[in-house]
Design a protein around this nucleic acid. Structure first.
Lengths: 275, 275
DNA sequence: CGATGTGTTCCACGTAGTGGAACGAGGTAT
DNA sequence: ATACCTCGTTCCACTACGTGGAACACATCG
């Protein structure tokens, strides 16, 4: 292993697109994970990832793209103005990406923050809105609780589906075969001692979620953090994402957290037509 | 010409990437305008453009990409979750794009709004921040004046370089050869009776801009709208974008508008290390 | 009911992207 | 100083991938 190439699986990176098959591409992939576009987009996301300008190697591991390809694509993206090549070998977000971001922001449905503010008012807790993005959810909005308790989450970061309240509420609305496919490709990596790591546990949990109409993450994603979440369905019934209330275990009991369910359901219902 | 293909030049679309040569690609292009990535990115921008979900044809014209290619790329982007294919043939921004946008937003330097707010406080007028994005500038931030006078501009929209105060202040900092190249490829389309439409006029104007250190758009972009703008240079001296103060002609004289120059220069100077 | 528009599918062609390997610079431990 | 990393960058032969013109199906309109 002289010249390092793309690593099999990147340590404990949340982003990890974890290729399941080690060898060359299996024949009939559901959606071959290797077109130029897909690589470029993953790289774009990796560049925009939290934590300042990133080095080539980091981008390459995060995006799971071979080094030379990463380099070439980064150069192309830089030429297009979507990433900025700093003097040293680091890359940051480019002006055209900021422009696109502004564009997207402007296109975002109004009234969303309204609903989230109301939810925070009712609960007094930190409130999250996340979207379902493939094998992960992506936090797109966060309203901090009045209490100065830091919650580590940041807007823009991605989290697994099976460890978060929003993720589980999303999974609960997905057809079982799709859940199985997701589990097969992303696995059920452990994040805390309480993370559900077997398909059986997860299935039982999802049934429970469906039964009571909301999901609870009881220190399954982050120690000392307990969340309650409800999915937001799109017009076709498929879950687009979800809202959640985040609490610290030593301040809010599980019962109290579950008490937020009505407010969460109301928020999700209000958000459905907006998303 | 039965089945319509990509149009030579798209009416009066601001986006227009206007291919100069009508025939097949000229041999030695400075930076060939046709890689898969570039097309995809243009399409992505077109989809995110203001005005709800767009139809395939609109996207294809805005991005200047052949119809079948547009369709294929849109399908790919949709599969990746970057665009959402509505039931009918329309396409909107997808969840993963919103996630990316949130990511970019989070990565955006803090303190920018601070500076812009101060500029608005000093001038009492609508304030814009735009980034230089190729043949256009893209508004990324806008602070409305206290006065309830609607200015049509929207965050995310693009404007020509030669008709706007920010655009001209950017051009003034660009090497002359680059200005000539931009003029050659984008032209100098007229937007109002006062728009500068000849290379000679523009060059003289840019010299004046350089002399006095700020640019003025005197109803050259929009009737009844007068702006003053200053470029924000990057670490290498190249202009990244600019700030401007927007006024209505019947309330603010040209002299008054020019009086905002010191505040604008201060804002630009403060923004330079942040962008 | 033809005419014009749309979104979608097909396919032969060749360009444009691919990724393994080698290179050289900078850094850090030996 | 020397050996050994790891990083960013360049090169190149192979072929997969994207290409865009044309044909198709379905609307809407006059």
């Amino acid at each position: 292993m002289s010249t390092e190439q793309v690593p099999g699986r990147g340590s404990e990176d949340v982003t990890g697109a974890a290729a399941e098959a080690p060898g060359p591409v299996r024949a009939g992939r559901t959606s071959a994970a290797g077109s130029a576009l897909e690589k470029s987009l993953r790289i774009l996301e990796a560049v925009a990832a939290p934590g300042g300008p990133h080095r080539l190697t980091d981008v390459m591991t995060a995006a799971a793209v071979p080094k030379s390809s990463t380099f070439r694509i980064l150069a192309a993206l830089a030429e297009q103005g979507f990433v900025r090549a700093e003097g040293d070998g680091r890359y940051g977000t480019g002006p055209r990406l900021h422009g696109l971001s502004a564009l997207v922001r402007a296109a975002e449905p109004a009234g969303v923050d309204e609903v989230l503010r109301e939810l925070r008012r009712e609960t007094g807790q930190t409130v999250h809105l996340a979207l379902h993005t493939g094998e992960t959810i992506t936090y797109v909005r966060k309203l901090e609780a009045d209490q100065p308790f830091r919650t580590a989450s940041r807007v823009g970061t991605r989290m697994p589906l099976h460890t978060t309240a929003i993720g589980k509420s999303v999974l609960a609305l997905l057809p079982p075969e799709e859940v199985r496919a997701l589990v097969a490709s992303a696995g059920l990596p452990r994040r805390t001692p309480r993370t559900l790591t077997t398909a059986a546990e997860l299935e039982a949990e999802l049934a429970a979620v469906r039964a009571r109409g909301f999901a609870v993450d009881d220190e399954e994603n982050e120690p000392s953090i307990r969340c309650a979440g409800v999915a937001v369905p799109g017009p076709d019934g498929r879950p687009l994402g979800g809202v959640s209330v985040t609490t610290v275990t030593f301040l809010v009991s599980r019962q109290e957290a579950e008490g937020y369910a009505p407010a969460l359901r109301a928020a999700a219902k209000a958000l459905a037509p907006l998303l």
